[in-house]
Design a protein around this nucleic acid. Sequence first.
DNA 1: TATATCTATCGTATATTTACGATTAACGAT
DNA 2: ATCGTTAATCGTAAATATACGATAGATATA
Lengths: 105, 105
Amino acid sequence: MAFSKIEKFTKKDIWLADIAKALSHPARIKILKILAGMNACMCGDIVELLPLSQSTVSQHLKELKRVGLITGEIEGPKVCYCINNANLQKAKSEINKLFNQVFEC
Amino acid sequence: MAFSKIEKFTKKDIWLADIAKALSHPARIKILKILAGMNACMCGDIVELLPLSQSTVSQHLKELKRVGLITGEIEGPKVCYCINNANLQKAKSEINKLFNQVFEC
DNA sequence: TATATCTATCGTATATTTACGATTAACGAT
DNA sequence: ATCGTTAATCGTAAATATACGATAGATATA
């Protein structure tokens, strides 16, 4: 790769691509669904619901947190993960906007 | 990585992740917007609109074609790329479904 | 205070992605 | 038939992602 060319694109496109990247692994899709199904937030029993090790799940959670789709609050010895509804809403609407923009061809 | 665990997830989640992966680079987001702006399909002058080499753009086009978001028809010595509206529509609605599913928490 | 539990991080191995230049293949025009 | 144009593919290098076990840090409980 020598050097990444990512900085040559618009902030918006970089942001959209970054959200898409966070959604680009089935484990992370599943984590979002699990967190939704719990309706209150929940801690890392997520690990038991995924066919992956604790450390790998932790990495996937970190990636979702990085783009702001979830939050993780320390609660005693556990960590309580939640969907970040505001950011999810923003992601949804921006992705929709992209699709609509691409449709009008 | 030793072995990928992707086959341990549902077909639907794998498919969603795959679409997201195709959208996970700003060059591919921009390519979709370019193709939309042309409203008829167009050939690889896309290259001139991107800060990337011809071979790199070709790889990005291949990735978008792989997941079916665009089509590429040979037209003489050129290749004419188009948005695949049906597949784009499907992607849009499934991603929306995912977001709505995750919201109801 | 010692112990058990939970989760992030470190170190590491392997796979995949990104990017480029060079080459090849396919075609139209001369 | 040759030449120029277009775009895919090959070979390669470097960056990033995926996955795990081991370890470390934080905390609740005994």
